[in-house]
């Protein structure tokens, strides 16, 4: 059932025909407007990176898209075959899981809690366990199935959460700063896995990140956000835009350039 879903979508798109439309998004907390009139079109098979200074409302945007905080405006998913648009099925990789490291919850428990009707402490059907293992293998993490969540490294946990976000396969994948607390190798592995998944499953991906160096190599499109959308385009376009210079301090740019980014 789920497989059929992919295949039909893959066959029909690949040209960015299906798309998630975010229109006139606004969030006000108390009397403070956090986001105003955000408009974005996220195409299939594209990794869209959202960058912006601290307090720009990046995480708020993710939370609003997830429906966790109330917002004005609409979000809809337009199917490639011209079928009726609907609220997109979303997969979410949280910023970081603040885990109690002593928690007796295994990776398998986490998956079963999401997908099974039977409680995770009861019988585990062989079919379910095999299917979880297959999902984990998508992110090269099948060996972690019986590990406790608290015993995973930052990179391992991030990959497990990525696999979880892809089960069931979402219309829109939201990654919230998946880079924090991960070493350089883990980081590259994560980005490579994400890129690969984007191609294989023709996913729409929104990635909130601070790491401009990394993001610029993997993102198809970049969005500069500061209360509203200031600039949209390819990473090069955005990083050279007027708004980018205005928003980020010179100091920050120097740092970025000295690390090898070309203007």
């Amino acid at each position: 059932m789920e497989n059929r879903h992919h295949i039909s979508r893959r066959a029909a798109s690949g040209c960015g025909l299906c798309c998630t439309k975010i229109e006139h998004f606004g969030v006000t907390i108390g009397n403070t407007p956090i986001l105003t009139d955000v408009n974005l079109h996220i195409h299939c098979g594209e990794l869209t990176a959202i960058i912006g200074p601290n307090g720009a409302g990046k995480s708020t945007l993710i939370k609003a898209i997830l429906g966790e905080i109330s917002h004005t405006g609409t979000i809809s998913y337009v199917q490639a075959n011209g079928g009726p648009s609907h609220t997109p099925v979303m997969g979410y990789v949280p910023q970081s899981l603040k885990l109690d490291t002593t928690s007796p919850t295994s990776v398998l428990d986490l998956f079963l809690a999401c997908r099974s009707h039977l409680p995770a402490w009861l019988i585990h059907s062989r079919k379910q366990v095999n299917s979880v293992r297959e999902r984990l293998s998508r992110v090269k993490a099948e060996h972690l199935i019986d590990r406790r969540l608290g015993a995973l490294s930052g990179g391992e946990l991030q990959r497990v959460l990525l696999a979880l976000a892809l089960d069931p396969m979402p219309d829109l994948l939201l990654l919230d700063e998946p880079v924090s607390g991960i070493d350089q190798n883990g980081l590259e592995l994560f980005y490579e896995t994400v890129s690969e998944l984007r191609r294989t499953y023709d996913l729409s991906i929104i990635l909130v990140s601070h790491d401009l160096d990394m993001v610029k190599n993997y993102a198809d499109r970049m969005v500069l956000l500061n209360k509203t959308v200031l600039s949209v385009g390819t990473p090069d376009e955005v990083l050279q835009s007027e708004s980018f210079y205005k928003v980020f301090s010179l100091e920050w740019q120097k740092q970025w350039r000295s690390k090898g980014g070309e203007g």
Binding site: P94, D109, A113, A165, L174
Partner: peptide, 22 residues
């Protein structure tokens, strides 16, 4: 109650945002 709701309670306890996305 434990049979019916445990999985969802567990997800909420692991991470509210993750639970919310589901």
């Amino acid at each position: 109650f434990w049979l019916l709701f445990f999985n969802r309670l567990l997800l909420v306890s692991i991470n509210p945002s993750l639970a919310g996305s589901r």
